[in-house]
Simulated assay, not measured.
Amino acid sequence: MTKLPQYGERYCHQSGWTVRIVNVKLASAQTQLLKPEFTYEVVFSYDSSLKYSAMPLTWFAEVYIKIADAPVPKVAQSLTLPTGISYIPRRTYYSARRPVEITEEHYSNFL
Rank of each mutant, 00 (worst) to 15 (best):
S49M: 04
D47Q: 12
P71M: 08
A70M: 01
R90N: 14
A54M: 01
R97N: 08
P89Q: 00
K51S: 06
S95H: 11
A96P: 01
D69L: 01
T80H: 14
E105Q: 12
D47A: 04
R90F: 09
T58V: 12
L57E: 05
P73H: 11
A70G: 04
P71Q: 06
H106L: 07
S53A: 14
V42N: 00
A61E: 14
E105H: 13
I102N: 03
A76Q: 15
A61T: 06
D47M: 09
I67F: 04
M55N: 08
R91C: 05
K66M: 11
R97V: 10
R97G: 02
D47E: 15
S86P: 02
A70T: 12
S49T: 15
F44R: 00
Q77V: 11
Y87F: 15
W59A: 10
Q77M: 13
Y64D: 00
A54N: 12
Y52M: 12
L81V: 00
Y64H: 08
A61C: 06
Y52H: 09
V72F: 08
K74S: 10
S48K: 07
T80F: 07
S95R: 13
V100S: 07
I88S: 14
E101M: 10
V100R: 02
S48E: 14
E62R: 13
I85F: 14
R91S: 13
Y94P: 02
Y64A: 03
V72P: 01
P89E: 00
V42T: 01
Y64M: 08
R90V: 08
T92S: 10
I88C: 13
Q77A: 05
F44V: 03
Y52E: 12
L50A: 07
I102T: 10
S45D: 10
D69G: 02
M55S: 08
Y107S: 06
E62S: 11
T58Q: 05
A76E: 15
L81Y: 00
S48C: 03
R98N: 09
V72I: 15
I85H: 09
S86A: 14
F60R: 06
K51A: 07
R91H: 12
Y52I: 10
I85N: 05
V63R: 12
I88M: 10
I85Y: 13
S49K: 03
S86R: 15
Y93T: 12
T83V: 09
Y52W: 04
L79G: 00
K66W: 01
A61Q: 11
Q77L: 14
F44A: 12
P89T: 00
P82Y: 05
I67G: 05
P89S: 01
P89A: 00
T83P: 13
I88A: 11
Y94D: 09
H106G: 05
R90A: 14
P82L: 09
F44S: 07
I102Q: 13
E104F: 07
S48Q: 09
A54I: 01
I65L: 05
S45I: 04
V63F: 10
R98K: 07
Y87W: 08
S49L: 06
A96R: 15
F44K: 01
P82D: 09
T58S: 11
E62L: 07
R91L: 15
I65V: 10
Y107H: 11
Q77S: 14
M55H: 03
A61K: 05
